[in-house]
Design a protein around this nucleic acid. Structure first.
Lengths: 189, 189
DNA sequence: CAAACAAACTAACAAGTGTTAGTTAAGTGT
DNA sequence: ACACTTAACTAACACTTGTTAGTTTGTTTG
């Protein structure tokens, strides 16, 4: 396990600040104070504020893309694939709580890599939708508009970062299985 | 139907900009340009940028508080109450699409009224949770952690603003009933 | 017609913005 | 002893920020 570089440390602290106040409201002087150095010193380690946002968001987006690839490769039923996607989100969100906030709130402040991010996102959504459509065809999944289903599940999963840190004793295994129950079978008894 | 005052117009346009870029990234000059006047002229109608954010967020938060009150007064089953809450969110979100974005993204930039907002929100969540707990007791609702259920449903409902504008022909009645199906009965057939 | 109002303007300000340049000091490897 | 790297610093820059003061112009009202 390599120790964290100074650059990684800055990016990690920045992600935390971005979660609390949003990208635009965090100044380089805020970040410097949190690192206990002067603002100018940050530039020994990073190129720009924009670069920090990019590394946070793009790295997470690529994790989701990779995760979706392995879900697709698995020879499972659509419901099983859905469960794998839920587990993917719990995993990625719990290891990138602060980054997920930046991804959800501040993706529009990406500049050079905005289009790349948008492509990753829409590809992900298409793959997700196709799984639902297959499930409907196979009779596994209710015949409701796939877009509404996807929206409902995906917004819950994308907001996990708001939820996970609240519980000190959060058991990720348990959270995953609770979400499986609720998202797949609903709340009715 | 009274015509919109100039102040209301500014607040409406501001909400739209806040949705696109977030409160902190929108400058008074951006807002002025969108209104086709100079920044200083805005101050003939509003007191401050902060004030604009407050009126947007607080007015919506109070709509939810009122809505929850009437849900509670109704003598319906818990599942019926849930459906009423879903309808409430569809109604409020569809008539305040831009404002909902500000509420979700920028509530932390409230200053004087931050605590008031937080109180409204936590009261709302408590009422919501109590409905679920009653439903579990009554055997209407699955015995899963109420917090996880609430989180799942509420994040979907809170994100409706992201979804509604995408469909040009969005039928709100239909959206409501689709959400009832999915959130209550899940996606499984 | 005069008074009042609504709604725009120009000009300016103090504070804060991201970032660059150049420097210093403490380790590290040869 | 030497150069190299790492990581901090001070000082400054050009620009942008929200906001205020004071003024002008057209419209409404008594």
């Amino acid at each position: 396990m390599k120790p964290e570089t100074r650059q990684q440390e800055i990016i990690r602290v920045a992600a935390k600040l971005f979660k609390e106040k949003g990208y635009s409201a965090v100044t380089m002087r805020d970040l410097a104070t949190a690192m206990d150095i002067k603002a100018a010193s940050l530039y020994n380690h990073i190129n720009s504020k924009q670069d920090i946002l990019e590394s946070i968001i793009i790295s997470i987006a690529e994790q989701f893309t990779e995760g979706m690839s392995s879900v697709q490769e698995s020879n499972a039923t659509c419901i099983e694939k859905l469960k794998e996607i839920i587990a993917l989100h719990v995993e990625v969100s719990s290891t990138n709580i602060y980054g997920m906030a930046a991804l959800n709130h501040d993706w529009m402040h990406l500049e050079a890599r905005l289009n790349y991010y948008k492509k990753l996102r829409s590809d992900y959504e298409n793959d997700f939708r196709n799984i639902l459509i297959e499930g409907i065809k196979a009779g596994e999944i209710s015949d409701i508009k796939p877009d509404v289903m996807m929206f409902s599940i995906l917004t819950t999963l994308r907001s996990l970062y708001l939820w996970i840190p609240k519980k000190e004793d959060v058991n990720l295994q348990e959270l995953s299985s609770n979400l499986n129950e609720i998202l797949i079978k609903g709340v009715i008894k």
